[in-house]
Amino acid sequence: MSKVVIIGAGGVGGVVTHKCAQLPEVFSEIVLASRTEKKCKAIAAQLERPIKTAQVDADNVAELTTLLEQEKPDLVINVALPYQDLTIMDACLAAGVDYLDTANYEPLDTAKFEYKWQWAYQDKFKQAGLTALLGSGFDPGATNVFTAYIAKHYFDEIHELDIIDVNGGDHGYPFATNFNPEINIREVTAECRHWENDNFVTTPAMSKKASFTCPEQVGTYSIYRMYHEELESLTKHFPTLKRAQFWMSFGESYLKHLEVLGNVGMTGIEPIEFQGQQIVPIQFLKALLPDPSTLGPRTKGKTCIGVVVKGIKEGKEKIVYLYNIKDHQDCYQEVQSQAISYTTGVPAMIGAKMMLEGKWKQPGVWNIEQFDPDPFMEDMNKYGLPWKVVELDSFDLDG
């Protein structure tokens, strides 16, 4: 029986709260906190069991610490913005609480996707006897665990990794983002980096494109190579990797809109002066776009996210593909959300469950692939993200 404080009441926060509420034997008490308590109350009203809500500014360490000292949770599940990771980690240290998040820290003023700021907390968490689990979403998160699972069960050594994230969903808008628009656009417009021969190689954003056919009739999609933070931790923790790449699907309409918005300066992260006020263009754009948490009822289609690993087993090369397919409408029926929030929120709940059950508990700061993947993979099958693994004869995205 454990108590959790969930910080963040966006699309993912809603899914995490729903999924935790479904397991009262693990999550006996839930507190959902956000800058806007009204959002927390709206999520609470959807649930079949009572939870507590609270107002908190996740940028304010003192305010966060006060909340944690009052509530005395066993774990904080951080599904706020990546800019707030460090303040929440500081508050967890001050209040003596374990920590979990789904995305790495990003400074507000530069689109940097790096773990160095959070890895720097290793000694602090170790000395405090607290566990911090980083990146327990889908990518990063489940894809890291997929890689660890494949490495453990199928290979003696892994050499190549391709993480492929396809969203075959359609929400009917000419342009909208499936998660926080500010984070989404910063991610997509950042320079691409992939791992090759013991180094990260930098190429222009969206400059490498391939075609990928998903299994189970999900369809064929254009995927683009981009940088994603799990490449940094996976190449560190699997040093035999010679190449590692991340790919994501984008429709032509999304890319055309993004190009035009970029050309007119609407994706900028530097403040500009407008009528005597400082505004950040991308934050203004966010206010104009549909809220991702409202896309659930109108999004049709499926996601297909997985990893392809090449490596050696008993001297022979082999290729293994492990993936999950999720239907947007199934997610909406269960937790009033589209599949992008669902596929992030479920692994956050499972990571929290692993920690609370003592299966993943070790003082310090850890990426998700550093723990035993087996119990996590078992729970993905149980709690809404069933996966399949197939061996491939060949695989090539270089064409």
Rank of each mutant, 00 (worst) to 15 (best):
M1C: 08
K3I: 15
G8K: 08
G8A: 13
G10R: 01
G14I: 03
V16M: 06
K19I: 11
E29Q: 08
I30R: 04
L32G: 03
A33L: 13
A33F: 03
K41V: 15
I43T: 10
D57W: 06
D59M: 12
T65V: 15
T66P: 01
T66S: 14
L67H: 00
Q70V: 15
E71Y: 11
P73R: 08
V76G: 09
N78Y: 06
N78P: 04
L81I: 10
D85S: 14
T87K: 07
A91H: 04
L93V: 09
Y99N: 08
N104E: 15
Y105H: 12
E106M: 14
E106N: 07
E114Q: 06
A120F: 01
Q127H: 08
L134A: 10
G135D: 14
F138Q: 02
D139F: 12
V145H: 03
T147M: 09
H153G: 12
E160Y: 02
D162S: 06
I164A: 02
D165C: 14
V166P: 03
G172E: 06
Y173I: 01
N180E: 15
E182P: 00
A190I: 00
D198L: 09
N199T: 04
N199V: 05
T202L: 10
T203K: 00
T203N: 07
M206L: 15
K208R: 06
K208Y: 11
F212M: 00
P215N: 03
I223C: 01
E230Q: 07
L231I: 06
K236T: 08
L241H: 00
F246M: 13
G251Q: 09
E252V: 10
H257N: 13
L258K: 00
E259A: 14
G265M: 05
E270M: 10
E270G: 05
I272S: 03
E273S: 09
P281E: 12
F284D: 13
L285K: 01
K286C: 15
R298F: 14
G301I: 05
C304F: 02
I305Q: 05
K310F: 02
G311R: 00
K313L: 08
G315T: 00
E317S: 02
I325V: 09
T343W: 05
T344F: 12
M349K: 00
M349S: 02
K353Y: 09
L356G: 04
Q362L: 13
V365W: 02
N367Y: 05
M377C: 08
D379T: 05
M380I: 10
K388G: 04
D393P: 00
D396W: 00
G399A: 12
